[in-house]
Every structure is written in structure tokens, then in C-alpha cells.
Design a binder for these strands. Structure first.
Lengths: 234, 234
DNA sequence: TTTAGCATTATGTATAACATAATAAGACTA
DNA sequence: TAGTCTTATTATGTTATACATAATGCTAAA
């Protein structure tokens, strides 16, 4: 084997100043174990102690802000906030910008989530939740009648399920994906037309939640989402 | 009911200049339907045509860059790139920064994903994948022997499953969450100690993939992850 | 004691200047 | 003519300075 001439070269540091300052600040947050609500030094202070211009500090702080690590107020300075994982993500979640493959994949993700969360549902569902679900299906519109309203209703029902799952991160994930689902539904990305008839209805799912098991629910939901699966896998 | 005195007040626009420029640029990208690789005007041009300082334009561009919408090179200017949804997200995914509740929730998310992706697996798995999985379990270490190595092996096996699922977005999601899983495992966040014995082994899962059904796999995986569930729900 | 107004302070914005890296153009040589 | 080296150009990266603006806290007047 011929020796690779680039082998002995060290990796050059091509990162910009802002990159370094950003890394520095994150390191500071981690190592100092700063708690939510703590304030960090002002831009001018940081600029002085780090030996870079205020502009660079500002850009680094902007990044932290976008990551949801800090919230900066006038006069006060920047305070540490509970990081918002999905904050930025949802901003770049513009369906018009994402390419079709990604859209299809995100749509698949929904199916994965709703089938996979059965255990969480059964662990945390309360009688009150059951009542609320029943209330929701009571106002269920006729499938064939009003398509738009039907989609809205779908969102309400399934949204309630996410709520019951009691996982805030999961719920926010869904909330972020919602516009995508909507977009995919209306975009013609799904090949086959939706079948009107559902095998397992919303009402059926509630029955399972009340008297069944996670296993039954997974199959029920799988069945309920059958249409979507068929449309994706065509 | 007494009338609300604030009712007739219009919502003030508290957004900063940078906010507006950012929105403007995103709108530009969407409406012009610009394709990946297209270049957008230089900072100075934008600053002139938008009537704001270059500073503001720079900050707005920085945000777009963080969203993965553009990639800016010296001299060339900024070019549009395929948005990287998880790019920024993974940067703020520092386990040391996330609070414990969020960590627990993200860990739950893993369980949801791996149970929920059964259908994708069965749709896309190939004989070659089965072989590779078998190859992986062949080198499976003794559970009781080397704990660290055992975790590594877990990651390899389950990572392969994500790969088989054939959903790039899902895979990258998992990749992003990996450090979290690792951290949670080692952090003492999980209450009960792990049980050594697994009901359904990796080998068992492979058998199901080869001869079983999605339904069987979901239950198998549910069983396989039983330990994790118990530790979370305590 | 309350409130109106002022001072203070840190971020937001603007401008100008220079550094640096990537590209293009031109000149020079084989 | 082709190829390479040098130089010029251009757009981003960085610095410095100044002023605007909003939030906070203090002070004095009612």
C-alpha cells in the first residue's frame, strides 16, 4: 500500500473567531453549571475578557440565542433559559423549503411515533382523558361530507393522544411537524387516494384505550393509519 | 361581562429590524423558488436594497446559515443549500445543558421510535440486512462481562435497525439523540438497576424480522426494551 | 406613599475601515 | 499554445466608534 502523503498533515483549524467564541461560551455554561435564570456577563464585558470585538461576541450570543440557550433582554443582559430544542428547528421547518424526500420521511415519522407511543398512553391515561376523547368523537363530522373539516378533526383527536402521552418533548415534536403533515396531505405527494372507510375508527381506538392493552392499541392504530401507509408505500 | 379595555388595542410590532430582514429573506427564498446552489446577493447589495445597515443584514444571514438554509463562502457570497433540519438542533443537544426532565423525555422518545418503526423495517429489510444483523450478534459480548462494551454493542445493533428502516430523517434523529442515550445510561437518572436477563434477545429480534410480522416485532421489541421501560416508569 | 421624571446601563443599529480568503485576470515562461 | 505564477479584485470576516432605544432603578415632587 502506498503511503498517503496527506497522512501526516495535521488538521487545520478553519473555524472562524465566532466559532471559537461560541464554543467558549457553551463550555462556560456547561462547566460553571449555570442554572436557568442566571445572567451572563454583558457583551462588552465578554468582548473585553475574551479579547475580541463586540461584534464577534454578539454573533456568538446570537447563535446561543437561536439554540435557545439564552434569552437576551435589553439592559439586563442575557439570561440562561431552559434550552428549547425545537425552537430553531421549527423555524427551518418550512414545508416549501424542504425537498420532497424529506417531506415524505417526516410524514413517515408521524406514523412511527403514533404507533410507538402506545405504552406511554396506557401508562398515563386517566378516566378524564377518556371522557375528553369521547367528547371529541361526538362532534366528529361525517367523513364524506367536509374534507377540510375532517382533517382538522383528525388533528384534534390525534393531538389529544400526544397530550395524553405526557411527554412534552414528543408533543412539541408533533406540533412542529403539524404543518408538514398538513402540507403533505394537500401537496399530492401521497400517491393513492385516501380510502374513505377506516377499519379501526377513532371510537375503536378509544375502546382499546379503555379496555385493551398497548399491544391491541398498536395494532389498532396501525390499522387506523393503514391508509397513510398504503399511500406512502406505493 | 365588562368590556376588556385592552380589547381594541392593536398588537404592537416588537420585532427587531433583524427579525424583519430575516423574514424578508426567507420569504424571498420561498417565493422565488430558488434552487439549491443559487447564489443570493452580497451583504452590501442586500443592505442597500433593503435600506438597512450591513450589520443587520449580517445577523439575518447568520440566522439563515444556522437554519441550514444557506452556506456562505468568502468572495462567492451566500449559496442556498438543502436545509439541514438537525444541524443546529444537534448543537443544542448538549446533555449537560438539558434539564433532567427533558433528558428523561428524550429517552422515552427512543423507545417510542424503536417500537414504532416495525412497519418500516418489514417494508424495507433485505436478506443482506439479515445477514449483517446476524454478523453483529455473532460478536456479541457476554452481558455480564464488560458493561461498557455491551453498551457499544447495543448501539451498533440498534443503529443497524435504524439504517434498515431506510428513513434518513429518522436515522439522523437517532444519531443526534445518541449522546443523550449514552448520558442517561451513565447518569443515574434511571432509577432501578438494569436486569441482566433479557426476555427477547437481539437474536430473537432477528428471528422475528426473518420469519415474523410487524406485530410480532413490536411486541418483541417492547419486551426487549422492557428493562428501560421499567427503569423510566419507576 | 405613590408617581412622574430623570439617569443609567446594556442591547440594537449604523458607519467606516482594514484583514483575509477565494476567485479571476493577466503576464510570463517553457 | 499551454501551463503556471503573480497580481488585482471582490465579498466576507473582524475591529472600532458612535448613537438610538428600551428597561431598570433612583430621586424628588405631590
Amino acid at each position: 500500500m502506498t503511503p498517503n502523503p496527506t497522512e501526516s498533515l495535521i488538521q487545520l483549524d478553519t473555524s472562524s473567531l465566532v466559532d471559537k467564541v461560541e464554543a467558549n461560551l457553551v463550555k462556560l455554561l456547561v462547566e460553571r453549571k449555570l442554572r436557568v435564570g442566571d445572567i451572563i456577563p454583558t457583551e462588552l464585558d465578554l468582548s473585553r475578557s475574551l479579547g475580541v470585538s463586540r461584534t464577534v461576541v454578539r454573533e456568538a450570543l446570537l447563535r446561543l440565542r437561536m439554540m435557545g440557550l439564552i434569552d437576551t433582554k435589553k439592559k439586563k443582559g442575557s439570561v440562561i433559559t431552559s434550552p428549547d430544542i425545537f425552537g430553531i428547528m421549527s423555524k427551518s421547518m418550512n414545508p416549501h423549503i424542504l425537498d420532497q424526500d424529506t417531506l415524505r420521511e417526516i410524514f413517515e415519522l408521524r406514523l412511527v411515533l403514533e404507533i410507538g407511543m402506545a405504552d406511554l398512553l396506557f401508562q398515563r391515561i386517566t378516566p378524564k382523558d377518556i371522557e375528553e376523547l369521547k367528547e371529541i368523537v361526538k362532534t366528529e363530522p361525517d367523513t364524506a361530507k367536509d374534507h377540510i373539516f375532517h382533517i382538522d378533526h383528525e388533528i384534534i383527536f390525534h393531538g389529544k393522544l400526544y397530550e395524553i402521552a405526557g411527554n412534552e418533548t414528543l408533543k412539541r415534536f408533533q406540533k412542529m411537524l403539524l404543518p408538514i403533515f398538513d402540507y403533505v396531505h394537500n401537496s399530492g405527494l401521497l400517491k393513492k387516494p385516501a380510502q374513505i372507510q377506516k377499519f379501526v375508527s377513532h371510537k375503536g381506538l378509544i375502546d382499546i384505550l379503555e379496555n385493551g392493552s398497548p399491544e391491541l392499541f398498536r395494532n389498532g392504530m396501525r390499522n387506523h393509519l393503514e391508509n397513510h401507509f398504503l399511500r406512502i408505500f406505493s
